[in-house]
Amino acid sequence: MSFHPLMEYGAGHHQSARVLPEEGPAFQFTAANLAKLEEICTRYPAERRKSAIIAALYLAQGQQGYITLSAMRAVAAAIRCSTAEVEDIVYFYTMFYTRPMGKHIVMVCRTLSCALAGAERVTETLSKELGLRPGETDANREFSLLEVECLGACDRAPVVGVNDDWHECQQPEAAKALIDGLRAAGAGSLTGCHLKVAGE
């Protein structure tokens, strides 16, 4: 039975399936990352280490590129919580990846202000240029293409994020230029955030 009398239920979409994380290669935090994590833990009350769970996952992801079951266990050990609690966090937040991603993770904002400026066509042209559908990574792990939600820079629409960097006012016609630029100069080819002031 559906929760709403007029909506179909059980047809594909609503059936749930628990996704199990991949074991992956054996994961251990580097000593430097463990030290960094201990420093971050001091920001919270001693009995509240769990507050550092997102920070620990960022460190793990920075080390390995994505989060595996093995990495989740390492995070759980460092935070002193259960692996299931870590798994919960990994699947809830969009910025953790559970499979290998490209060197350049290209994220096109698809929300209204960017869409009004043609974000759908940005995705379309990037998609064509890279031969990837949103959500996919190429075989060489050079590029991943993702659609993301409002990045909080809507005055410079359409906004594209690449890993931790930003590229703004991306025109659909300039998809090839964006990709060539990333291949040639990495993040150096991006506009960055417009709030950078001339003269700094």
Binding site: T111, L112, C150, A153, C154, V197
Partner: peptide, 16 residues
């Protein structure tokens, strides 16, 4: 957290 679509003011304040 500034995630409301169409909102980007806190971004300016924090960065500048």
């Amino acid at each position: 957290d500034e995630s409301e679509p169409g909102t980007f003011k806190d971004h300016v304040l924090m960065e500048r």
